[in-house]
């Protein structure tokens, strides 16, 4: 109950009630307190192509004497077996494991099933390699704590991508979309004798005052893989990751190709397939805001038309 000394007890009570019943997400790392639906009410293999339909896999029991057993349901696909993908359940003794989901994957690979395949490198959230779908939303395995996962915890590869093996998706198309926005400095004037300078305020547009500007993107593709519009029209819609980078170059005061960049973006699919769903901003493991960047591009295009 709120303190009796408050000048507006009714308002405080209402705020308290709202905070208890409604989850107000303040940052992308925050998990909802209450889960009404773990997934949308569609069949598990709804609309998946025949070779992508997921089957039941095997369960790897915890070793006897394990102290703190936690279950992980992990998407498996072995291209050499000729079989469909499956879900394996691993019982892991998290009492003898590092604190992060990536530690669990490494423990499984070294102690339980050495064929489990995933990408990882820096283990500190800066390389973007271990992006995957953990408990239904995309995040980096190295920065999600085991304590912050569900029971059982479900681990899938990034969504709607061709799977090479287990948790390793083929990112070729997403890199091609990144290349399409021409992520490099383009200038027209004569080459200056020294480096092109920016004021701190101009640099802030790229890096962000809080370090969360578009230039902080690590290209993990959590956002693009979590965007429903990219699921349905990914061949033509560039997706939040590429568009955030498109904005990074549009916002750069040293770049002189804004008009040409906007020409390439102004398309019913490339840019305007974004319907401001904002799953991107919700899921970004670096706390960046692709949704806002796409909004800024649309504003720039509206600006040059009026």
């Amino acid at each position: 109950m709120p303190a009796a000394t408050s000048p507006r007890p009714a308002l405080d009570w209402l705020k308290h009630l709202l905070e208890e019943t409604v989850t107000l997400i303040r940052s992308s790392e925050q998990q909802p307190r209450v889960t009404l639906l773990r997934r949308f009410p569609v069949p598990r293999n709804f609309a998946l192509p025949g070779n992508a339909r997921i089957q039941h896999g095997r369960t790897w029991r915890a070793p006897p004497g394990a102290k703190r057993v936690k279950r992980f349901e992990i998407y498996r696909y072995d291209p050499d077996s000729g079989e469909n993908p499956r879900i394996d359940t691993f019982e892991v003794d998290v009492g003898s494991c590092g604190p992060m989901v990536l530690d669990v994957l490494i423990k499984i690979k070294s102690e339980i099933d050495s064929t489990l395949t995933f990408r990882r490198s820096c283990r500190e959230g800066i390389c973007g390699s271990c992006a995957m779908n953990i408990d239904g939303s995309n995040w980096l395995a190295c920065t999600r704590t085991i304590a912050g996962t569900a029971e059982p915890s479900t681990i899938y590869p990034l969504n709607h991508l061709p799977i090479i093996k287990d948790l390793v998706p083929d990112l070729t198309h997403l890199y091609a979309q990144y290349a399409l926005i021409e992520p490099w400095l383009k200038t027209r004037g004569p080459v200056p004798e020294r480096e092109r300078l920016q004021s701190p305020a101009e640099a802030d547009r790229l890096n962000g005052k809080d370090g969360k500007g578009p230039a902080a993107c690590i290209l993990c593709f959590c956002c693009t893989a979590g965007c429903p519009s990219h699921w349905w029209n990914g061949q033509r819609f560039l997706g939040p990751a590429a568009l955030l980078q498109a904005w990074r170059w549009l916002a750069d005061t040293r770049d002189e190709a804004a008009g040409e960049r906007l020409d390439a973006l102004e398309d019913p699919f490339r840019l305007y397939r974004c319907h401001t769903i904002l799953n991107c901003t919700r899921t970004c493991p670096k706390g960046l805001n692709p949704g806002q960047a796409i909004g800024a591009i649309k504003q720039k295009i509206a600006q040059r038309r009026s």
Binding site: F40, A47, N279
Partner: peptide, 13 residues
């Protein structure tokens, strides 16, 4: 290559 699931498993937010 099989397509990884999307709508079927993504958490409703």
């Amino acid at each position: 290559r099989p397509l990884s699931p999307d709508l079927q498993i993504y958490r409703p937010q």
